[in-house]
Design a protein around this nucleic acid. Structure first.
Lengths: 345, 345
DNA sequence: TTGTATGCGTTATCAT
DNA sequence: ATGATAACGCATACAA
């Protein structure tokens, strides 16, 4: 037996009315008599009637659903962001369709095509770390697909953005290490062409500059796949640690980079923070247990998800010109560990 | 400007053909002349034509989408499971709509109604820890909605399940603690009426029995919200630690419970494993860094997601009787820490 | 106040 | 080999 939902037609037949009368009664139209209305609503309720959203979509040319493209769901930052997106979407009666780019350009593009063809009303996009060219995105945007770029940003005229103040976040993280007495701080970041990377590196160098520490280009490592591939981070660490003047601390500029730098240190038996200082961007749930070795820059993932979904849905539902909407910048949080809070492992 | 996709009608008009000819040409029907076919396909490709899945759904009475209900997306176990679900769905041309129950019965029920009304072809469900009664689920199932229950299981006649061998997992975890020399092992689990709970507790008691350790009911704590609420775990720990004969080790039966037991120990400055042994079910990405204090039972979340999605889609696409499909049991993994691999924190 | 007809995009059935 | 028409479920312009 196939699952069959009750339709307006069924109600009409059962009550000896026409479908339009039923439709109008259910939408509480003024043209319908109270008695009929009541009868229809009672029957609908009794039989658990729900309008078929597919038929509605076809008619209204909108699906009340928004698409989300992230690099990977199983990444705390994004699962928290999706959580935020979901909460807003739920409130406003939208549903969420999720697609993953897995940090690959082709997958990102096909996800984009897929969502467009699924008739989503709009798209929330955090680009993959391999996306150096935004043409495929701009093309869809120019065809009229509403979009909001969040976290890993797309940059072209008109597109709306929800972001954190990455410069400040990286600046504060670096400053924290400097204040702890580290003198030769390296930085591992994602792809060099991404805004989140250039901004975080900018914050890093700004802090070094402010505290009169030398800025060495061989102390900055860029990771092609944004940390998805462990080996790439290990290789970067190898390069850094094999320098003549090897760094005494690391600024790890993403969730995955942070985790894998810690793994590297564990494998190589490098003591954090005695042999190597570390501060990382991280949203993992357990980071608070890794005190006092790890101070983290926490990205407000949930809040970003909410802000991005809120902005997109406002754009969708407003008649105002799209240019009237403003980008959103959300502050990140530096979580400093107190050594006295140490868990004895 | 609103995003408008190209339709068969547009192609027909542009090429001076009828919609049915275009439709047939695109589906490579034998009745269409090669020239026409070629012309249509070329035009479609050039203009990036994609069939409108909404119209298709309305016609076919199927949406090529499956619904997933989990307690929370931002929980590593579920985000990994969703990852697995997504991978299978992608392969087979389905899309995934996700809903969260937040461990609340009403939210679970409304998610169920929502997905049914969204015309999903089937549902993957991990029940909330507050679901002691399956009537709302069975009702939908009996109306013909294909379902697969995974992880937190639903149990009624006919429903298909994808699960881990919880008894074995908990047995091995407990055995591990016993082998380390712990003599008074307590157990913190989720709601008492859930199969995952009863099975894990069964594995726990079986191990104690096997090694001739006393089984004390006040050494078993049940958490109403499955660990979503930190206080509930703290209270359980308080009760355990305030007993006259307080336990020397804990078996934590879920991801959230494990994390929060660790947090509790950190706050109370309880040394793991010197003052208190701990083994927990955990899927967090960072657990491998918490050596050697924490051996974990790792749930094969990704594999479960894949197995569940695979089973559901096979059920959807097969003409065979639903009873012919078999439940899937997936083994969990015990990850024992080697003290020599200690990260110096 | 209610009913009839149309269209959203697609395919299947029936013409031609 | 191609075209016209109906149907999926719904909302609505138009008729009565």
């Amino acid at each position: 037996m196939r699952f069959e939902a009750i339709t307006i037609k069924d109600i009409a037949k059962a009550l000896g009315l026409s479908t339009s009368t039923v439709s109008r009664a259910l939408r509480d139209s003024y043209e319908i008599s109270p008695e009929t209305k009541q009868k229809v609503i009672a029957y609908a309720k009794e039989n658990n009637y729900r309008p078929n959203p597919i038929a509605l979509s076809l008619k209204e040319k909108r699906s009340s659903s928004i698409g989300v493209i992230v690099s990977e769901i199983a990444n705390s930052f994004f699962s928290q962001a999706i959580n935020g997106i979901e909460s807003i979407a739920n409130e406003k009666g939208y549903n969420v369709i999720i697609a993953q780019s897995k940090e690959e350009l082709e997958r990102e593009d096909s996800a984009l095509q897929y969502l467009a063809s699924r008739s989503v009303d709009g798209i929330l996009l955090s680009v993959s770390s391999r996306t150096s060219n935004f043409d495929h995105i701009k093309k869809l945007y120019d065809r009229g697909m509403p979009m909001v770029s969040f976290d890993c940003l797309v940059d072209f005229e008109g597109i709306h953005k929800v972001m954190v103040d990455n410069i400040k976040a990286a600046y504060e993280g670096t400053e924290h290490l400097i204040n702890k007495g580290f003198k030769n701080i390296a930085c591992i970041a994602s792809s060099s062409f991404l805004s989140i990377t250039t901004e975080r590196v900018k914050g890093y160098t700004a802090a070094l500059h402010k505290y009169n520490q030398p800025i060495q280009t061989n102390n900055i490592e860029y990771i092609p796949h944004g940390g998805l591939i462990q080996e790439e981070i290990y290789e970067a660490m190898d390069r850094l640690m094999n320098q003549k003047e090897k760094p005494d601390a690391i600024l790890a500029c993403s969730d995955r980079i942070t985790t894998n730098v810690m793994r590297y240190c564990q494998n190589k038996k490098i003591n954090i923070p005695k042999q190597l200082g570390l501060i990382g961007f991280s949203n993992l749930d357990l980071t608070d247990l890794l005190t006092p070795s790890l101070s983290v820059v926490r990205q407000p993932a949930y809040e970003m998800g909410r802000a991005a979904a809120d902005l997109l849905i406002k754009m969708l539902e407003s008649k105002r010109a799209i240019t009237e909407f403003e980008n959103v910048v959300i502050p990140s949080t530096l979580i400093e560990r107190d050594s006295s809070m140490q868990i004895k492992l």
